[in-house]
Design a protein around this nucleic acid. Structure first.
Lengths: 143, 143
DNA sequence: TATGGTCCTTCCCATCATGGGAAGGTCAAG
DNA sequence: CTTGACCTTCCCATGATGGGAAGGACCATA
């Protein structure tokens, strides 16, 4: 199986397969006489594993650890679970961060007329000039 | 005002201030006789604007547009609002993506014993081997 | 057999935003 | 005058991915 076919059947681009090999995430495959990389089904399987881990937001280094856990037939499922839940916590932290941004911005947009007038509380907030309308608490400046 | 003071009072590192200057996000400030950058309060104000925009998740190019809107005294607030809401939509898209990841992973972790046994549905799912326990719908493989 | 198209190889560069650090000049206080 | 904190420019690294060039390999068809 050539790299192109391995790419098609794993969802990992040929470019990335070579990169993964270069950083040691996967081993170097066999080569044909002319130097073409030849992939066994087992290796394509590994590529699919990697693809799926990446899709779940694991970094390449985390994926490396997952691969190690996968290959270690005697690992405790508790180890894997801890690893997964740790990643879930990281995802949730990032989600919260983005939600804070979106919330602040949505709030600002809500107070913006959105008409032809130039006056805009969004820019006023970014500028820190906080055009005080009529009784307004200093909200959302905690960044 | 030296670059260090400008950095402290804007929250943008000296390194990034120089970078912003190099890419034309901000103009080149005055220089002292010995070549030190000298910042006026106005420029520090701009840096704070940039910092805040970055904190809200705007890219540098988006920040550039926001700066242009800010400086354009005759812009319509509708333009700013549209820009902001567009960014909110992008943030929400990313949030949804992360939530999908977290949800899938949380679900997988839930089905994992998390004890000393090696058997682990998380790795099984990543591997695509899907150890069918007893009546299990193919959930979460839409990546 | 020649040709063309599609694949493969390696190598370098770009992205985006940021930090690290080296080598050397400047400034203010002791 | 020395010391230490600051400034300057320049280069390199990150993480994950893609783009593309130059050249070789393979295969089908004329």
């Amino acid at each position: 199986m050539n790299i192109g076919q391995a790419a098609d059947s794993s969802g990992v681009s040929a470019k990335m397969i070579r990169y993964y090999e270069s950083i040691g995430l996967i081993g170097a495959p066999l080569r044909s006489e002319s130097g073409y990389r030849i992939y066994a089904p087992e290796e394509v399987h590994t590529l699919r594993f990697i693809k799926r881990a990446r899709n779940l937001g694991f970094s390449i280094d985390e994926t490396r650890e997952l691969l190690a856990l996968w290959r270690d037939k005697s690992r405790a499922s508790a180890d894997v679970k801890r690893f997964a839940l740790n990643h879930v916590a990281e995802l949730e932290a990032k989600i919260a961060e983005l939600q804070a941004m979106a919330g602040t911005l949505r709030h600002l947009a809500q107070t913006c007329h959105g008409d032809g007038r130039p006056d805009c509380p969004i820019l006023a907030d970014l500028a820190g000039t906080e055009t005080p309308p009529k009784g307004r608490q200093s909200a959302g400046r905690s960044g």
